[in-house]
């Protein structure tokens, strides 16, 4: 592992936390203020009675909005823009949705198993018409398990950066450069967890999330290709271009 001074780790942690706060889409206070606003039964039924393709399109739009914030987050991480453009794209293609899944825990209410979506808190039944109950259940379970770790915003920021800077993604041109950045981020995360007197096991639990995140994203890709096989014209004409670039 690289030799890094404490100062450097502190500086990186500060940079990543600031980048996260500037690009987190919703402030914690806004989210907490809205938790009492869950969709009413007739609103849930309204989502359930939408045509499948309309709901898919709505979700693609929401995911794309969230991803745009993640792109901004990446750009502000020290070192990211110094990578070659191929690697910036490889990392975002593979990792931006994973960061959206991580960020989902900020907007998740464990008490009633709901997540902030389209203006209110929504349970999994809202997404029924998408026809991918497995993926939805897994995403909710993931958010719930992330919530149970009670990470601070700083820790969440560093974990998101650690995931985004995964050096084992396919097609990286300067793998060792990404590797160094990721190692530094991991050290900064470790340092932060120690500073907050969190046990060693938190880091182990976070590292275990890596494969869960990859599973979630590959299930998303599979679900999208199944949808596209039936509705190719809807995807082509109505899905956000960025979404198609990332997952097409």
């Amino acid at each position: 592992s690289p030799t890094v001074s404490m100062d450097e780790l502190e500086h990186l942690a500060q940079n990543i936390s600031k980048s996260h706060m500037e690009t987190c889409q919703y402030l914690q206070e806004e989210l907490q203020q809205s938790t009492w606003q869950t969709f009413l039964q007739d609103e849930v039924e309204c989502y359930q009675s939408k045509p499948k393709e309309v709901m898919w399109q709505l979700c693609a739009v929401k995911i794309t909005e969230a991803i745009q914030y993640v792109v901004e987050f990446a750009k502000r991480i020290d070192g990211f823009m110094e990578l070659c453009q191929n690697d910036q794209i490889v990392l975002l293609k593979a990792g931006s949705l994973e960061v959206v899944f991580i960020r989902m825990c900020r907007a998740f209410d464990t008490q009633n198993n709901t997540v902030y979506f389209d203006g209110k808190y929504a349970g999994p039944e809202v997404f029924k018409v998408l026809g991918c109950d497995d993926l939805i259940t897994s995403a909710y379970d993931f958010a719930k398990s992330m919530c149970s770790l009670h990470l601070s915003e700083d820790e969440l920021a560093l974990f998101s950066a650690f995931i985004l800077l995964s050096s084992d993604r396919s097609w990286l041109q300067e793998k060792s450069k990404v590797e160094k950045l990721q190692q530094k981020t991991q050290l900064a995360l470790q340092h932060m967890l120690q500073k907050h007197q969190r046990g060693e096991e938190i880091l182990t639990k976070l590292i275990c999330k890596v494969s869960t995140l990859r599973g979630l994203c590959s299930r998303h890709t599979e679900t999208l290709s199944a949808f596209r096989a039936v509705y190719p014209d809807i995807v082509r004409a109505h899905f956000p271009p960025l979404y198609k670039e990332l997952f097409g």
């Binding site: 901004e72 502000r76 794209i89 271009p241 960025l242 670039e245």
Partner: peptide, 14 residues
């Protein structure tokens, strides 16, 4: 390929 992503990366951070 990746036209939008290129564009987003090139836009200066606001």
């Amino acid at each position: 390929k990746h036209k939008i992503l290129h564009q987003l990366l090139q836009n200066s951070t606001s």
